[in-house]
Design a protein around this nucleic acid. Sequence first.
DNA 1: AAACTACTTGGCTAAACTACCAAGTAGTTG
DNA 2: CAACTACTTGGTAGTTTAGCCAAGTAGTTT
Lengths: 96, 96
Amino acid sequence: MNNAIYKSKANVIKAIAHPSRLMMIDALAEGEKCVCELQALVKADMSTVSKHLTIMKNAGLVTDRKEGLKVFYRLRLPCVLRLFDCVDEIIFANNG
Amino acid sequence: MNNAIYKSKANVIKAIAHPSRLMMIDALAEGEKCVCELQALVKADMSTVSKHLTIMKNAGLVTDRKEGLKVFYRLRLPCVLRLFDCVDEIIFANNG
DNA sequence: AAACTACTTGGCTAAACTACCAAGTAGTTG
DNA sequence: CAACTACTTGGTAGTTTAGCCAAGTAGTTT
């Protein structure tokens, strides 16, 4: 079914479509970060941050790696960042 | 507040993140289409299609134009399509 | 102007999402 | 091994979203 393709695409995009998740993706552009660093960034409960990361991981946006007590997340594919250029373009057009 | 920027970005991305809306964006890549054509494409109630289009219009993704009885929608910025390349890349990596 | 076409809007219900707290797990340190 | 740190998972309440039907609007045709 062709419909399934659109559903899986929507799933990936939905995983990006949240203010905290966008913020984390931007931060991960610099390199991998532990959950504690991302929590400090978005200022939410750690369980909330963890769930956001799980959503992004399931969508294939990030991968994780455990080192000692900490879990480090990193972007799986850098193209996610390019994706934001278009979003910025749209927002600029909206306010222009 | 920096947070407001992420919120508005998330809003644009959310407007894309739906199977039917993705399907319609793909169709609009060919050129403008009336609501009736888009309804035939996604096979939902016309009121549902109309609401999806309103969401995309409010996000600045599409614009509309009335001609006689019909309302034609078109993509406001072509960059939305480039955005899908990355999504495809992620899905390919997920299944590869 | 009555009937018709192409949409949009309102109302409502079911499903999905989000965030917190509490409890559990894995690894570390004293 | 008990206490601690860094997370994850379960549970739950509040919010948002999606879809249909019904009703309303705008333009057209007869």
